[in-house]
């Protein structure tokens, strides 16, 4: 944990001192939260949600992002069951037509068998989904 902090410090220092841009590839959302400006969430080969870090973490709209954030253990979940995204990551050899997340998605319907395009349901947010969580995000 402390070594992690040292590595992050070095990476951040390099960016600041030399003006380098950085892509931080990880599955650790908590590290990303403190480090980055912008986040891209990928699923099965595609970016499904993209936006400023605070916007995405505070108001995720893609069901996959919502599921991911829900499954992170934290202060408030002590001893409770964690949210599980049902099912498994699909094999890339055998993706369904349309949205790759449809089989695991609580909001999926017939529309999702078509290819979702990138939309901008919120300012500065790119989402690849027919049924993003928009009302919830606005609240």
């Amino acid at each position: 944990m402390t070594i992690q902090g040292q590595i992050l410090y070095e990476a951040q220092k390099l960016c600041r001192e030399t003006g380098t841009a950085m892509i931080w590839i990880t599955h650790d959302l908590a590290v990303v939260a403190g480090l980055v400006d912008k986040i891209c969430v990928m699923y099965a080969g595609r970016i499904v949600e993209q936006g400023a870090i605070s916007d995405v973490l505070d108001n995720p709209v893609h069901p996959y992002t919502v599921g991911l954030l829900g499954s992170v253990p934290g202060h408030n979940t002590r001893g409770e069951r964690l949210y599980q995204i049902p099912g498994m990551t699909p094999s890339l050899l055998n993706l369904p037509t349309g949205c790759a997340f449809q089989a695991r998605c609580p909001r999926a319907d017939e529309a999702c068998t078509a290819e979702p395009n990138i939309t901008q349901p919120l300012a500065n947010r790119n989402v690849r989904c027919f049924h993003p969580y928009l009302q919830e995000a606005a609240e």
């Binding site: 944990m1 402390t2 070594i3 992690q4 902090g5 040292q6 992050l8 410090y9 951040q12 650790d28 959302l29 908590a30 590290v31 939260a33 403190g34 480090l35 870090i53 605070s54 973490l57 954030l69 992170v72 934290g74 202060h75």
Partner: peptide
């Protein structure tokens, strides 16, 4: 204090005082 948390933003990481 080192634990990264989801609700933190824009942390200025500090050089930790030494390794184990």
């Amino acid at each position: 204090n080192e634990v990264p948390r989801l609700d933190q933003r824009g942390i200025e990481y500090e050089p930790v005082s030494g390794e184990i």
